[in-house]
């Protein structure tokens, strides 16, 4: 594996040299391998949004470096647009960015800016739409005639169509209903599996993060407090709570059982895992028939 994204002592200060100076991101260093699925969690105002916006050069760090494939993205500020194609960014409630006459044209906006044309452009649009589960007949429609969930998909497709090596998703499921959340999340997972690119998923929904992430970044007050495999992060529930974060209900249940002396595994993240762990124990007790 190779390191696709490296942050070196990255920092961002709002209102530098004014009395209102505020450190939004404070000395963050880390390495992300190509193809990893990273979960990003942190309380509102923990600096995670600022950090994400520095990854594709929408914000310029006030300290440190962002290295993409080993090169500083601000090496040549005139070429920062190219970085934005390589590190795709889906903002929260991305549907507000839709503006074209048709869904297809809107999805094509990014790849067109990249210089794609004709068949290549068409293919990028089609495959992006397919990844987000947008039905082909919707592509000719006005984006403003779509339902809320469809708009969200169209907007995400608009970023995926640029085929970024790294895809940052900021709360992609916010405001969707449980079914919409579930479907969108599994589409993101499928996209990750097929394209093998790197994904950073920012979310407040710990259950979602627990299901999909390989490693988790925990931000608090501008600092990177933890960056470790998912199981390890969620087994440190008490620490997470100090940062105003919660572990999934199922993880807590299993943790409590463990504390009470039952031999259940540590860092259980999903109902499936809990079920698998409990079944043999209950059988042994002769509680099942």
């Amino acid at each position: 594996m190779s390191c696709v994204l490296e942050l070196k002592n990255l920092g961002f200060v709002y209102g530098k040299d004014t009395p209102f100076e505020k450190k939004a991101v404070d000395n963050v260093s880390l390495q992300i391998e190509a193809g990893e699925f990273i979960g990003v969690i942190g309380h509102t105002g923990s600096g995670k949004s600022t950090l994400m916006q520095m990854l594709n050069g929408l914000m310029r760090p006030t300290a440190g470096q962002v290295l993409l494939d080993g090169r500083d993205i601000w090496e040549n500020p005139k070429k920062i647009r190219e970085v934005r194609f390589r590190v795709g960014m889906v903002f929260q409630y991305p549907e507000y960015q839709l503006f074209e006459e048709t869904v297809a044209k809107d999805i094509a906006f990014g790849p067109q800016n990249q210089g794609k044309q004709g068949e290549e452009l068409n293919k990028a649009v089609q495959s992006a739409a397919a990844f987000t589960g947008l039905k082909p007949e919707l592509l000719g429609k006005s984006p403003f005639d779509l339902s809320g969930g469809e708009k969200r998909r169209a907007a995400i497709a608009g970023v995926i169509a640029m085929n970024p090596e790294v895809l940052v998703l900021d709360e992609p499921t916010a405001g969707l209903d449980p079914m919409g959340r579930e479907v969108l999340l599994s589409q993101i997972v499928r996209y990750h599996k097929e394209r093998h690119n790197t994904i950073l998923l920012v979310s407040h929904t710990m259950e979602d993060i627990a299901r999909v992430a390989d490693r988790i970044m925990v931000m608090n007050k501008g600092k990177l407090e933890m960056f470790a495999p998912t199981k390890e992060v969620f087994s440190r529930g008490a620490e997470l709570e100090r940062f105003g974060l919660k572990v999934p209900q199922i993880t807590k249940i299993m943790q409590q059982l463990r504390q009470k002396g039952f031999s259940v595994p540590e860092g259980v993240l999903t109902v499936d895992e809990a079920f698998e762990a409990l079944l043999p124990l209950l059988k042994k007790e002769g509680r099942l028939w």
Partner: peptide
């Protein structure tokens, strides 16, 4: 604030 957000989002899609 909304204008700002939209501008960032379009820039992220390579708007120049």
């Amino acid at each position: 604030e909304e204008t700002d957000k939209i501008m960032q989002a379009q820039k992220a899609r390579g708007a120049d």
